[in-house]
Amino acid sequence: MRSKFLKQLAAITAGGLLVLGLGASGAQAKTDLLVYTAIEADELAKFKKAFEGDYPDVNIKWVRDSTGIMTSKLMAEKNNPKADIVWGLAATSLMKLSNEGYFQGYAPKGIEKLGKLYYDQKNNPPQWVGQRAWIASVCFNTVEAGKYKLPLPTSWADLTKPVYKGHVIMPNPNSSGTGFLDVSSWMQLMGEDNAWKFMDALHVNISRYTHSGSAPCKLAASGEVPVGISFAYRGAKSKSGGAPIEVIAPSEGVGWDLESFAIVKNTKNLAAARMLADWSVSAKAMKIYNEEYAVVAMPGIAKPVKNFPPGILEKMIQNDFAWAAKNQDRILNKWRDKYDAKSDPKK
């Protein structure tokens, strides 16, 4: 009895070690395409299914994280890149990485149908190609607002009013792309000095900075913090899900960035990466983008999206990606020193 049990145990162990060994080397017929992305988790399955339906020989493997973290990760792997293609990451980040010689140019089939604003005009073939824009918005919990007697904010400036003290939450621009596009847009709207002054005032009202760009809206939706600086897609999604929130596009203008893709230099799966690139600029893909996002790279496709703040498209700022990419590190370091580094030393 006992010795049989032990024999089985031994067999399991031996078998296990073998499987561990095999598993490590990996043996699959399909091409695994390692895709680094910052797209929201709840959309990933949809994209994977749609793409693999059209290209059954390719198997997408997602590595997802917030924009800032994905950018840092890519930067850290610079000498030994792991990703085949970066997909759905902020154009600002891709431009920064492009300057480091991270990517190889490729003009996907049908790129001529995209708006010129939406892909790399500096290089030919382009190093990065935009897919859709995500736009800053403020999520405002009406139930909690009633409790604390908070007026509905309509502008960025409103958020610095003392009435909102401790009631505002925003993403940390060092880790979140949404956080950075907010900071970047304020600078482009107000000029750098005024933007810092604005953020000093805002910092007083901020309850804390989150790691991800969607967390503030989720926390606003659940009433944890009434006002969350986030982005339109997350706000609309939460509102459609039944959260008691208003999604607001502040009157001064809203920042935005392009979810874009770029093929990593020296990828071993170039063919598969190009397939994803081609698919990503197709009308079919654009229609899927539009299910959740109001602005896509191919003109004439987009239909209005439910619960997006009215007039938000008009409020999108004239975004200077090149400026943002060039100044990103400087701005982020200064931001860290001002607001992150000095978090509550006296407590």
């Binding site: 988790a41 989150t210 969607s214 967390a215 503030p216 989720k218 926390l219 659940s222």
Partner: peptide
């Protein structure tokens, strides 16, 4: 799973 708890909480999905 344990890391998922962390990441979900991070994303506000408490």
């Amino acid at each position: 799973a344990s890391v998922a708890v962390l990441n979900m909480d991070d994303a506000g999905d408490t």
